[in-house]
Design a protein around this nucleic acid. Structure first.
Lengths: 241, 241
DNA sequence: CGTAGATGTGAGCACTGCTCTTGTTTCCAG
DNA sequence: CTGGAAACAAGAGCAGTGCTCACATCTACG
């Protein structure tokens, strides 16, 4: 008979209540982030929205920085999920199609969540340094899909020839050490290929950044420009059919 | 005899004093920006450093936003100056050398002034929208040198062939309208060339951003990676010799 | 059933941007 | 040379922030 009780340590009422409040806080925080932006994130305002006294929120959230960290990790996983989904809807043999999916996925996510994007790829939030152990891991999730594509491009023999001047020695010296990371285990990627993939990724990120942050002023056809940049980026590591 | 008086309206004592204080404020503001970052910019703190009462500073600076705008314009011109200087030290015929100078100039400036760089190319400062009339003009100053290079590359017949898939129709549709701007007057640039130049610039900016904001985590050889990316970027619009 | 620990409450500190009033100094025209 | 207008300095004050602490309350578990 005691089995019934020990078999459902489903979390006591208290723990459940706590979890509910914590997720409520995160929900409201995300709401504020989406509407006001990261810098306007105020614990007091969140507490107010939740009908609790300003000091009460510190029972659930250690500090403003910790809340930021949670939001960052959230955003990273949301982004990675979006990009992965977009990528996986293209048939594996269509290499440039997969790249386009990655690029468009990133762009549309960034446009839909500009403040989250700013949190991840914009200037670091003042007086806040992201705890590397929690964020960089989440941050690499997006890069996994790029690495998969890069590896497949290589395996298919469709790797673009590196630009003149990108000697293998240069790439190896700069990127060789990174290749020994677990991250690259099981791939046949070499330093030059990695350099090319990173160049494409950097161009992609620059394109999205410049569009979301409006660095070139108001553009007549942002969509079209992005399409051009996406082609340029793809050409950096994928050979034409 | 009255000529002597009308000939030296050198600014009265008052105006001179005012100008002195204003530049003092800007100096301290730049100092705070360099050490603390944009978000930590506090008018009260500046006033304190200057030994004046907090409210007094509002006689010289309309608001925090206005001070930010001044700093942004300052930063843009400082950046443009640095890049132009670096670029002009290379002999005009050395096209890739000129590109490298631009890239390295931008990078070293960004590393030397990370907070200024964040102000220009990072996430927009919360609750602050840059007055387009004052900032975008200063912002294009950097692009002038890129345009000059692009035009010279074109004239020298060294324009790289666009990547497969970048049809002229695509580029023209996206960028054609921009070409009618005064900015491009006197150049023989066409839409595809502009697209290629913008791709290189975007890649460059993405590379610097990712390094300054440490988006890829701590790198073993950031210098080397940047060199690789610079070569990739140059290959986007300059043909090898 | 009692109590230890989790939770709610409100006051308080130090800081921010910004406004307003009050008093002083400076400049310039008559 | 002098009177008045404009510029300036100073301080109080408002509303907001992150965060701490002492205190009261409640509840879940031994």
């Amino acid at each position: 008979m005691t089995t019934e009780e020990t078999a459902r340590p489903v979390l006591g009422k208290r723990a459940r209540q706590r979890q509910a409040i914590e997720s409520e806080i995160l929900r409201v925080a995300r709401e504020h982030l989406a509407t006001e932006g990261a810098a306007a994130l105020s614990l007091r305002a969140i507490a107010r929205d939740l009908g609790m006294v300003s000091s009460g929120i510190y029972r659930y959230v250690e500090s403003r920085d910790e809340l930021l960290t949670r939001l960052i990790v959230d955003a990273y996983t949301s982004l990675a999920e979006t990009v992965h989904d977009a990528h996986d809807q293209v048939e594996p043999a269509d290499l440039t199609g997969r790249w386009d999916a990655i690029g468009n996925g990133l762009r549309s996510w960034a446009i839909a969540h500009p403040h989250d994007f700013a949190l991840l790829y914009g200037s670091p939030v003042p007086d806040y340094t992201a705890p590397a152990d929690r964020t960089t891991q989440a941050g690499t999730a997006v890069l996994v899909v790029l690495l998969r594509l890069l590896d497949d491009v290589d395996r298919a023999g469709r790797l673009a020839s590196p630009p003149a001047g990108l000697e293998e020695s240069l790439a190896t010296a700069a990127l060789g050490p990174m290749l020994s990371d677990d991250f690259f285990a099981g791939t046949g990627i070499d330093a030059t290929a990695l350099a090319q993939g990173l160049a494409a990724w950097t161009l992609l990120l620059g394109a999205v950044t410049s569009e979301v942050f409006e660095q070139l002023g108001p553009l007549p056809d942002a969509e079209g420009l992005f399409a051009c940049l996406l082609v340029s980026a793809s050409g950096l590591f994928i050979d034409a059919d």
